[in-house]
């Protein structure tokens, strides 16, 4: 993490506040705190912000505030950041069925790492994963903190269609596909929960700074939850992070 954030211009209407050049929970926390501080400040002219692994993209209207003045205000906010302001992180429980047709690559992941399928499930579902950012497709969470014991390279040939809800592994990363999309991740399971619903408010289930916990379920539970999701009756369990 840098001593002081860098302000980088991104054209006439945006700037990037860069906090570091690595992926770490500390930088993520700083981003979360700064994001909330900017939101709270009610700074005139801010249009929207996009938090990422190590930066915040700030879009603003120069008719309200010019670049130099905005940098000055942002520096003030950064200097006055304190820990007390941020809310405790939430853990969103994602019920997941592992293996079978839902996770066709789980046996490869097991073989690749000299593990049994049950061990892969045990390792994958025993941690809470920090949501660093959303991007790539609507609602796609970039999760951090997967165990190296189940690291597996991407497929050599990507699949043309991966069903929404698929849980996968790519290298050191794990993730969930919110919508049907092509992709090269090793698929180990699937959740019946909807991560993206354009008609909902907010349209996504997960937020940067929160955590994801995968909870193994069987096919009967999967079908039950899927039906509830389709009837709009399902709500996810949310726990507080135990430190």
């Amino acid at each position: 993490m840098y001593e002081k954030a860098r302000f980088l211009p991104a054209g006439d209407k945006s700037l990037i506040i860069e906090f570091g050049d690595s992926i770490s929970p500390e930088i993520n926390k700083k981003i979360r705190d700064m994001y909330l501080a900017i939101e709270k400040s009610g700074l005139d002219g801010i249009i929207e912000m996009v938090p990422t692994y190590r930066s915040i993209l700030v879009s603003y209207n120069p008719l309200n505030i010019i670049y130099e003045d905005l940098c000055h205000k942002l520096r003030e906010l950064e200097d006055n950041l304190n820990d007390s302001g941020s809310e405790p992180a939430k853990v969103v429980e994602i019920p997941t069925i592992y293996g079978g047709d839902y996770g066709p690559d789980i046996e490869f992941v097991a073989q690749h790492n000299d593990l049994s399928v049950n061990e892969v499930i045990e390792i994958h579902s025993s941690r809470d994963y920090l949501i660093y950012m959303l991007g790539f497709t609507p609602g796609f969470p970039y999760l951090g903190g997967m165990s190296e014991k189940i690291e597996t390279p991407r497929l050599k040939t990507p699949r043309t269609k991966i069903p929404a809800g698929s849980v996968g592994i790519a290298g050191k990363q794990t993730g969930i596909y919110p919508i049907d999309s092509p992709g090269g991740w090793q698929l180990i399971g699937r959740t019946p929960v909807k991560l993206f619903d354009p008609f909902a408010e907010p349209p996504v289930l997960l937020n940067p700074g929160d955590y994801v916990r995968f909870v193994p379920i069987d096919e009967k539970e999967y079908k039950y939850i899927l039906k509830q999701v389709e009837e709009n009756k399902f709500t996810v369990n949310i726990a507080l992070l135990d430190k």
Binding site: K13, I23, V50, T52, Y53, G135, Y142
Partner: peptide
């Protein structure tokens, strides 16, 4: 490490040829 993209961002991947990002660009 991935960060935000705006309309008009000129990306240069490893092949060295620029790409100007427009309205339907991905967010990051």
């Amino acid at each position: 490490i991935s960060d935000g993209i705006v309309s008009g961002s000129v990306q240069v991947p490893g092949h060295g040829s620029p790409i100007v990002m427009m309205a339907d660009r991905q967010t990051t």
